[in-house]
């Protein structure tokens, strides 16, 4: 049997080829005009895809809630894709999201380095992009339109200030030993907060010495084990502890109580204003925390996408405020813990 030559191929003369090519060019041009038009359309009824990390962590879940609420207020039609901090799954979710041609994408990177190729893809697809919560390396900043989220280094710096302030208030003066319970090593908040804390102390309170640090992996139980060991190592010489999250500080408090140390005598500085921290500050066992509100974090991201869709050109990086919270102003945390 003779193979049949397809119609198009048979009739495609040189002239036809040129004609088809120019038609294709025109179509593409029209298409890109439509795309950029829809991207610049008002936020109302815009199609936005939010790619986020998890619903099983309190912070993530509040972030999602407040984003959803703000988006609803603005009349955005929102689609949410969740991955359990799985960078590989997130990469394929990004591909899917691009294929759906939304008016904008909001992305919480599961891994701030692994996400870079996906950022590049979104950029070359011409879809406006807001990165939220985890800041990738600034040398890739051209791939996103806006980053909103915490400034972890500033958060660590605020924690250092709180530590210094607590040393004065509790009568330890300007010198003494502290230790750190940090998050999962290598995660951006762990690195940023530790750096900010160290630099803050070195600059303003060089008498306060960091004697040791162990990871509590953002987990209360792990933090309590780590703190127990650090209390064993340094005993009663320890005057303060900086835990990079309030739930880990809850573990530190348990460890202190179990070791027969009164936590209210220590300068305990946590982070985030999560419910564990707020209750511990109210009861006086924890001295301070650094506000990082998941509600604000979600709202900032939503506001950024609204601004983008409304044709404003927001600045490339928008940080959350990182306020020191003690018993005196603990009510500032109410919104963050959903009160």
């Amino acid at each position: 049997m003779k193979p049949e030559i397809p119609f198009a191929q048979k009739h495609l003369t040189g002239l036809n080829k040129v004609a088809i090519f120019s038609a294709w060019m025109m179509a593409t041009a029209t298409l890109s005009v439509t795309t950029s038009f829809s991207a610049n359309a008002a936020a109302k009824d815009a199609k936005v895809i939010l790619l986020t990390v998890s619903e099983e962590c309190e912070y993530c879940s509040r972030h999602l809630q407040s984003f959803r609420q703000k988006a609803q207020e603005e009349g955005i039609s929102l689609k949410v894709k969740i991955t359990n901090f799985d960078p590989a799954e997130q990469a394929s979710q990004v591909d899917q999201a691009i294929a759906e041609r939304p008016d904008a994408i909001v992305l919480w990177p599961a891994d701030a380095s692994a996400i870079v190729p996906s950022l590049r893809k979104i950029k070359s697809a011409g879809i406006p992009l807001v990165v939220t919560n985890s800041l990738p390396d600034m040398k890739y900043s051209k791939f996103w339109d806006v980053y909103t989220g915490p400034n972890d280094k500033a958060s660590g710096g605020s924690a250092a200030k709180a530590m210094e302030q607590g040393f004065n208030e509790k009568g330890y003066g300007e010198a003494g030993d502290v230790f750190l319970v940090v998050g999962v090593p290598g995660t951006p908040p762990q690195i940023g907060r530790e750096e900010g804390f160290k630099q803050g102390l070195a600059a303003d309170a060089p008498g306060i010495q960091i004697k040791g640090a162990q990871p509590g992996n953002w987990d209360q139980t792990k933090a309590s084990e780590a703190a127990s060991a650090l209390f064993t190592q340094f005993g009663t010489k320890v005057k303060g502890v900086y835990a990079q999250a309030d739930n880990m500080m809850a573990g530190v408090i348990v460890a202190a109580q179990r070791a027969g140390i009164d936590p209210s005598k220590l300068v305990l500085v946590g982070s985030n204003c999560s419910i564990e921290g707020v209750t511990a500050i109210e009861s006086g066992t924890q001295y301070a925390t650094v506000l990082q509100s998941p509600v604000q974090d979600g709202e900032y991201a939503a506001q950024a996408v609204v601004d983008l869709l409304n044709g404003k050109k927001p600045e490339n990086v928008r940080y959350l405020p990182q306020q020191i919270i003690t018993k005196a102003n603990v009510s500032e945390c109410n919104a963050a813990v959903g009160r």
């Binding site: 987990d219 209360q220 792990k222 739930n247 408090i253 348990v254």
Partner: peptide, 13 residues
């Protein structure tokens, strides 16, 4: 019972 709190991340591992 450690801190009279519960959440889904607690028993990881």
């Amino acid at each position: 019972s450690q801190a009279s709190q519960g959440n889904l991340k607690m028993a990881a591992g």
